[in-house]
Design a protein around this nucleic acid. Structure first.
Lengths: 151, 151
DNA sequence: TTACTAAATAATAAATATTACTATTTAGCT
DNA sequence: AGCTAAATAGTAATATTTATTATTTAGTAA
């Protein structure tokens, strides 16, 4: 799986994260660690608001603004990545290994999948000459089986 | 190119569009035709607001709400597709041939590119068993050369 | 052509998501 | 232990999108 859920491994990622913050000149605050930790152990690609709710259990005084601001900062430093669904709220994830997304246009559920054959094929020239690439992935939109059953 | 800009061909698409509307039971209104036509001849994947500005030159009384509502309706009927950038506004396009997107995280410019090698490779099982797919494409985020030059 | 009806629109208000402001707190450094 | 710039909490403001309602119009059938 793309995300190892054992405590030890998650803590390894948290450690790497703190190192990356220091390298980037970002202060390692309680809030930042908790936001990163919550996102790391989330399997459902949460929104800022969903994360805020989770983190508020540990840090009741954390503000929603901090969550938004921090996620934006993390994204700028490529510590996390943003998933743009058709839903009104942006979604986030910690990327540990290359994967792709199946996104339901109805319930906005995001499913990860692997596609090694894709990861290996050569990129067209256009891509190489465009600029600095921070992520390259396949995004599939449609309606998931659960939603199909409902309608 | 993915989009033929000759008037004749665009009008062919407009005709097909009106046929699709009738099939779907959608009324063919001035507003809908102008919105579709404007999107069809736009090369910059415009937002609802950008489209509203363009269409207002022909139909000064058109409301922004109509543009939003109409784009949503078109999307539901797979007449157009939505591009989810990191920018605050959603972007749209008429899809005439299979293509993919390079999206700059700074200026949110969307560039189309073709990748026949991708279009041909086999899909993993996960995809086939997920639900009804309405679009499958490669999305690349990063910073374009223009923005790289600025910073 | 004219009249009918349901769908679509314009204008406006409301809701929602995100960002900005400011006083206070805190991490990292001396 | 104290200093300083960065980060945060609380709140306000902005921006985007959606809802409401009265009016208009496309499609249809007399």
């Amino acid at each position: 799986m793309y995300q190892n859920t054992s405590i030890k491994n998650n803590e390894d990622f948290v450690f790497k994260f703190t190192e990356s913050c220091k390298e980037a000149g970002l202060k390692v605050t309680h809030q930042r660690i908790e936001i990163y930790r919550a996102l790391l152990s989330s399997k459902d690609h949460p929104s800022a608001e969903m994360l805020h709710k989770i983190i508020a259990e540990k840090l009741p005084s954390i503000s929603l603004d901090t969550v938004y601001r921090t996620l934006a900062t993390f994204e700028q430093h490529d510590l996390i990545s943003r998933i743009n669904t058709s839903g009104s709220q942006a979604r986030f994830e910690v990327v540990t290994t290359q994967h792709h997304h199946l996104i339901c246009s109805r319930c906005n559920t995001v499913i990860d999948f692997h596609w090694p054959a894709f990861d290996e094929i050569d990129q067209p020239e256009t891509i190489r000459n465009w600029g600095n690439i921070s992520s390259k992935s396949v995004v599939i939109y449609g309606m998931c089986n659960i939603c199909l059953g409902k309608s």
